[in-house]
Computed example of a mutant assay.
Amino acid sequence: MFTGIIEDLGIVKDLVKKGENINITVESNITNELKIDQSVAHNGVCLTVVNIKDKEYTVTAIKETLDKSNIGALKIKDLVNLERAMKLGDRLDGHIVQGHVDQIATCINVEEHDGSWQYAFKYDASLGNITIEKGSITINGVSLTVVGSKKDTFSVAIIPYTYKHTNFNSLKIGSIVNLEFDVIGKYVSKLQEIKL
């Protein structure tokens, strides 16, 4: 379980394909605090640490993960948003995030305002996911509030701290991002389907 509050920006140092899987090696300031078998969210995708060496650690992404997220499109030197699993008893500063990406979206607009940025995204609404105005959404692992919601598009506003400390500063029109929709909203939506 995660909160969507990014701890560090990791740098992809190596990508090794093994069968249908990819081993991803990341350099991070939090590596010395990690241990083998620990869960770390990478752009919102929960992956398990399988190796640690000096300032770098390695995780494995399987085909299911590669098919549903932007992890398979990573390149060496790319920046990834990192968050370790939350500790029971800590403050929940973001919202409840599982680290299970629901689908991807495409950035369709970026507007710089005086001291903030607004990003718009388009996603495939036929998969049954929805956003609501002022609801929670996780984009590349970042817990955010929806400020504009339509059937297959939504917007979020980014403050300077988030812009500087996440990979939002590298997103542009056409960038592909990972989405995890609000878990409570997903259960409510599923219950509504069952009642119909």
Rank of each mutant, 00 (worst) to 15 (best):
S126T: 15
K77F: 11
W117Y: 13
A61Y: 00
S155M: 09
V147L: 01
I6N: 00
I184C: 14
E180P: 06
K190A: 11
L79A: 14
S116A: 10
K35C: 03
N51Y: 10
H165M: 08
I96T: 15
V146H: 05
E111W: 10
S170T: 08
D78T: 13
L34N: 09
S170L: 05
N32A: 14
G4K: 02
N29P: 00
S170I: 13
Y123Q: 04
S136E: 10
Q103Y: 06
K17E: 13
T166F: 06
S189K: 07
L82G: 07
H165Q: 07
E20G: 13
N23T: 09
K18I: 15
G148Q: 07
N51L: 14
T166M: 05
D182W: 11
I137T: 14
G115P: 04
F168M: 02
K134T: 13
D14W: 06
I194G: 04
V177C: 04
T3V: 15
W117C: 03
T31V: 14
N169K: 15
R84V: 02
I173S: 03
I96D: 11
L179P: 00
E112L: 05
D93R: 10
K87E: 08
D152R: 06
L74I: 11
N23C: 11
N140L: 04
T131Q: 05
G89E: 13
Q38T: 09
